[in-house]
Design a protein around this nucleic acid. Structure first.
Lengths: 251, 251
DNA sequence: GTAAACGATGACGTAGCGTCAAGGTCAATC
DNA sequence: GATTGACCTTGACGCTACGTCATCGTTTAC
C-alpha cells in the first residue's frame, strides 16, 4: 500500500507542501520512483507521519518531534510529563487572558456609557499609572478591578450599595448550589431555592427577565467550557445541575 | 519628559529592536532630534506604547493592535468580543490537549506490558480517524448551518410541547448513554438503543434524516471541543463511545 | 493528440522580532 | 586633542512552519 504525495496529504489532512517540507528538513523522507522522481510513501512512512502529527498536535516543535521519534533512548514519558506542565501553564495563561479581555470589555462598555467628565477622570488616572510602568502590572490589576467594579455598576446604573448586594447574593447562591448538588436532586427544595436566588441575582444585570432566556443562559453554562469550569469548581457537575434544576423551576 | 530608545525600552521592559520595529511598521513613530536623527519618545508616545503593549498582551496581532488603538471605542469593543471567542476556543482546545496528553502518559505507562501488535492497533485507529477528517470538516460547516436552522425551528416551527418532548428525550438519552458507556460495549443492546434514541431526538431538529449526516454529527461530537466536553460530562469518553456505537448502528 | 491533473524544484512571503555588522555621535577621561 | 566606551543609526540575515506562486516535466483520461 503506497501513496503519492497528494494522496497521503489528503489522508492525513495536511498539505502536500507540508510533506515536502518534512522531506526537506529530513523529518519524513519518502522513497522515490526511479524514472520520474515522484515521492512514494509506504506503510513505514505513513506510520511515521502518524507519530509526527501526533506529537505535533501535542504542541512540540518539529525539531523536538524529530528527536523524540528518532532517539530510542529518548524518554518520551518524561517529555510528555514536562509537556503536560507547559500545557497546563498555557491554559492558565489563556485563562488570565480571557479574564483580562473580559475586564477590558466591561471597562470599555462602562466608558461608553460614562460621561465625558468621568471618562476624563479615567484617563487622568491612567496617566498617573503610566509613569509607574515598572510597577504597572500590579497597578493595572488593581486599576482594572476598580474599573470593572465601577463600570459594572454603571452598566445598569447600579449604586455601589446595590452592587454589593448583588455580590453578596452571588456568594450565597454558590453556597446553596453546592449544598443542593450534594443532595443530588434537581427538584429538591434546596435546588429550587437556588434557582430562585439565581433569578433574583439576574435581576441585577438583566433589564428584563424571561424564562426562555434564563434557560438559555443555563444551557450556556453547560456548553461554555469557561462557565462550566466555574460551576465545576463550586460543585462537581454544577453547571448541569443548575441547568436541570432551572428546567424544573422554569416549567 | 522625553526618553531615548534604550531608556524607553528599559522602562517598558521590551527591547530597542522592538521599538525600531514598531517605528518601521508605523505602529509607534517617535520624534527625531534634528542633528543626529536619534529617536525621541515623549509622553504621547509613552502613552501609545502602553496601549500597544496592553493589547499585545491580550493576544492581538500588531496589525490588529494598530487598528484597535486607531479605531473608536465601539469597534474596539467588537474586536474584543470577537477575540474573546477565539480565546475561549483556544482554551477549550488546550483542555482537550491536556486530557489527550494525560491519556497518552497513562497508556505509555501501561504500554510497558503491551505487545507490539497492540501498540500498532492504536495507530491504526488514529489513521481511521484521520480518514474522516476531511469529511468532518464539511459536516462541521453544515453543522453550523444546522444550528441556525435548529434555533430557527425552535423559534418558529416547534411547539412548546414538542420542544419539551425533545428535551425529555435528550435527558433520557443521557441516562442511557451513561449506562451504556459503563457497560463499555458499543455493540451492546443498550448502546444501540441509545443510538435509536439519538436518531429519534434528531428528528425534532433535522428536516430530513440521513445516516451519513448522523455519522458526521457523531464525529463532530468528537472533534468539536464544546460538544466533546458536553458528552464527557455525561460519561467519560461519551463522545467517542456514541460515535463508535453509531458506526455500528448506521451500518 | 490534446487537455487536465498531478508531480517536481525553486523562490519569495508571512510575524515579531533577535542578532550581528558597519558606521556615526556623545560624554568623559588621559 | 585624542581616545575610549557607551549609545545611536540603518541594513541585512535568521528563526518557524509552512502558503503561495512560477515554471517546468509526467501521467492519465477522453
Amino acid at each position: 500500500m503506497t501513496y503519492s504525495i497528494n494522496e497521503l496529504a489528503a489522508l492525513a489532512g495536511i498539505s502536500a507542501r507540508t510533506l515536502r517540507y518534512y522531506d526537506q528538513i529530513g523529518l519524513l523522507t519518502p522513497g522515490r520512483q526511479q524514472d520520474n522522481a515522484y515521492r512514494v510513501y509506504g506503510q513505514k512512512e505513513v506510520d511515521r507521519l502518524q507519530q509526527i502529527l501526533f506529537y505535533r498536535e501535542l504542541g512540540f516543535s518539529l525539531t523536538e518531534v524529530k528527536q523524540m521519534i528518532e532517539a530510542d533512548d529518548y524518554d518520551s514519558l518524561k517529555a510528555l510529563q514536562d509537556h503536560l506542565l507547559v500545557l497546563k501553564e498555557k491554559q492558565a495563561q489563556t485563562g488570565l487572558l480571557i479574564t483580562n479581555v473580559e475586564k477590558t470589555i466591561a471597562s470599555l462598555k462602562g466608558e461608553l456609557t460614562m460621561s465625558d467628565e468621568e471618562k476624563f477622570e479615567g484617563f487622568k488616572q491612567q496617566l498617573i499609572n503610566d509613569n509607574e510602568k515598572q510597577y504597572g502590572k500590579e497597578i493595572r490589576e488593581k486599576y482594572g478591578d476598580d474599573v470593572v467594579d465601577q463600570s459594572n455598576a454603571k452598566l445598569k446604573g447600579l449604586t455601589a450599595r446595590q452592587y454589593e448586594q448583588a455580590q453578596e447574593l452571588s456568594n450565597q447562591l454558590n453556597v446553596y448550589l453546592k449544598k443542593a448538588v450534594e443532595q443530588g436532586q434537581p427538584d429538591s427544595e434546596l435546588a429550587q431555592k437556588t434557582c430562585a436566588l439565581h433569578k433574583e441575582w439576574l435581576g441585577y444585570y438583566w433589564p428584563q427577565y424571561s424564562k426562555e432566556a434564563h434557560l438559555g443562559l443555563a444551557q450556556m453554562y453547560v456548553d461554555d467550557p469557561r462557565f462550566k469550569a466555574y460551576y465545576e469548581a463550586i460543585a462537581p457537575g454544577g453547571a448541569e445541575f443548575l441547568r436541570d434544576a432551572l428546567k424544573i423551576y422554569c416549567s
